[in-house]
């Protein structure tokens, strides 16, 4: 348990050296960190909103336009196909996120490297 416990102790308010608080502030206001946050936002916010809209369209349409959703398409209906499409859309968004996140990792690594140097 040793390491974990001490890390948490160090992070508890009041027990922390004054200048270490300013390290966090310094990183938070640095250009690199602002870039990371901006890059994350450009992907995550639209992706999240798209997924909410696409998902909630399903219960809304099925609930309030059941006849329309029962429109036959071959042997199945629109309702089933739309529900099935949700799985694939979720997988695609997850895949795109993983790809975008590689970029986040790169930006975060720069910040970590710099913070390491600053500490020592």
């Amino acid at each position: 348990m040793a390491n974990g416990a001490r890390d948490l102790e160090a992070a508890r308010p009041g027990q922390e050296p004054a200048q270490s608080q300013s390290i966090w502030d310094r990183i938070a206001t640095s250009k690199e960190f602002q870039d990371l946050m901006a890059t994350k936002k450009t992907f995550i916010v639209p992706a999240f909103i798209f997924f909410l809209v696409y998902y909630f369209a399903l219960p809304v349409l099925v609930g309030y336009a059941p006849q329309f959703m029962d429109t036959k398409i071959g042997k199945v209906n629109l309702a089933y196909l739309f529900a099935l499409s949700q799985f694939f859309v979720a997988w695609i968004i997850a895949g795109l996120y993983v790809k975008a996140a590689n970029n986040f990792d790169r930006l975060a690594k720069d910040i970590l490297d710099k913070a390491d140097k600053g500490d020592k």
Binding site: Y55, V62, F87
Partner: peptide, 30 residues
């Protein structure tokens, strides 16, 4: 069909976990 709607929600919910929760939680928690 209405039962299948549970199935959809149960998977799609993981996008919230993936996009919003999992990484910050791992980074900042114990």
């Amino acid at each position: 069909y209405d039962g299948f709607l549970f199935s959809v929600g149960w998977l799609v919910a993981y996008l919230t976990v993936l996009l919003v929760i999992a990484e910050p939680l791992r980074n900042a928690g114990k």
